[in-house]
């Protein structure tokens, strides 16, 4: 059941991205930046966490979850340390995406050549 909803919710978020490509004629950079901001906003209103509970990877794999977990990390730290936590807690929960992209980027650069 979880797999089904991961498929549907994840797929629908991608369709939103595709519509931004095709109808609003946005570049991938603009589209993804907007989606991240939307993810952050949704978490600000407490709406993204229920979506993760419902759809699992369908909500955590799309880039929107990056914005969500940035806010989440910041809020968690802010609960403990006040305003300064907003800054210090930002990457508390999202380090893995950026870290692995950097590491595999480096390994990729060592192992591969562009195929063209």
């Amino acid at each position: 059941m979880m797999f089904f909803w991961a498929f549907v919710v994840g797929g629908l978020i991608c369709v939103i991205g595709q519509l931004m490509f095709d109808i609003l004629k946005l570049t991938p950079g603009h589209t993804l930046s907007i989606l991240v901001v939307i993810g952050a906003l949704l978490d600000g209103f407490g709406l993204y966490e229920p979506l993760i509970d419902f759809a699992g990877a369908g909500a955590t794999v799309p880039i929107t979850s990056f914005g969500n977990s940035l806010v989440h990390g910041a809020m968690q730290e802010a609960d403990q340390h006040g305003l300064i936590g907003v800054v210090t807690g930002m990457f508390e929960m999202t380090s893995s995406g950026i870290t692995s992209a950097i590491i595999f980027g480096m390994i990729g650069a060592i192992l591969f050549k562009p195929k063209g």
Binding site: M2, P50, D53, F54
Partner: peptide, 9 residues
């Protein structure tokens, strides 16, 4: 139940 997972917390 799946449909109630929105109210999980």
């Amino acid at each position: 139940r799946q449909m109630d997972r929105f109210r999980l917390k």
